[in-house]
């Protein structure tokens, strides 16, 4: 088993995660600890289990076996494996933020409403939610675009709205799946700057799936998967730890 060493107490501690789809093994006993304020890139070829690992860590889809402990500061430790779908859905919207390649913004809503929606679902009043959404959008360089509908925004602007939505709830862990995958290199770099500033720059954790080595090298740590096995775990500027799960 591969075990990675970390400097800070982990907010997410995954032990022996295993997940299969029929005869295909997507995760084969993955162990991973993610600490607060850390940015982690998950890399690997298509079908290596990157997205499955991200979904497992975020409580989107549970692994078949293994344990996954969420230990956020000031909150009770939670074993995601023990939560039902409803509880995990609530946990995701309250404790996690997400930025996906597709953006997953609601086309009928304005940029401001898309961001405010994340707060309103958690019970914040519409007036307060809209105010906070406007502030976050302005901080991300989208002042004046609050009332634009999603179809009226460029790809980079859409991703900034998605980042604003992931950030507005104050989530301490943000998951991103190819957040710059659909953008040109310049826009992608700008979006990545914003994403890193909003997350690790603010003391939060970022877990990001990417194919792009230039994106991965901006992260504190890079893990590589192959056929469901975690084959390497390296920190920027330090030696690469390479192992085999079996």
């Amino acid at each position: 088993m591969l075990e990675n060493s970390i400097d800070h107490p982990p907010v997410l501690n995954a032990q022996d995660l295993r997940r299969s789809f029929g005869s295909t093994t997507a995760l084969n006993g993955v162990n991973l600890k993610i600490s607060l304020g850390e940015s982690l890139a998950i890399m690997g070829p298509s079908g290596s289990g990157k997205s499955t690992l991200l979904h497992a860590l975020a409580g989107i889809e549970l692994p078949d076996t293994g344990s996954l402990i969420l230990d956020l500061p000031g909150q009770a430790r939670v074993d995601l494996q023990q939560l039902n779908d409803k509880a995990r859905t609530k946990l995701r919207r309250q404790s996690f933020g997400f930025v996906f390649q597709a953006g997953l913004l609601i086309p009928e809503l304005t940029a401001e409403e898309n961001v405010a929606m994340a707060l309103m679902i958690n019970g914040t009043s519409r007036q307060t939610a809209m105010m906070q959404a406007g502030q976050v959008l302005a901080a991300l360089g989208l002042a004046g675009m609050e009332q634009r509908r999603i179809g009226q925004l460029s790809g980079g602007q859409m991703q900034r709205v998605a980042i604003a939505r992931a950030q507005v709830t104050g989530a301490m862990v943000v998951f991103a799946d190819e957040p710059t995958g659909a953008l040109d290199s310049t826009t992608g770099a700008e979006v990545l700057d914003v994403l890193l500033a909003c997350t690790v720059g603010a003391g939060k954790s970022l877990v990001m799936v990417t194919h792009d080595p230039s994106v991965a090298e901006r992260c504190d740590r890079v893990v590589k998967l192959s056929d469901g096995n975690l084959i390497s775990d390296s920190r920027q500027g330090s030696s690469t730890f390479v192992g085999q799960t079996r």
Partner: peptide, 16 residues
């Protein structure tokens, strides 16, 4: 479907 599933992943309940 992709939007609904995606929003559910983000934590928006299907009931909403």
């Amino acid at each position: 479907a992709p939007l609904y599933s995606g929003l559910h992943r983000l934590g928006m309940p299907y009931s909403t």
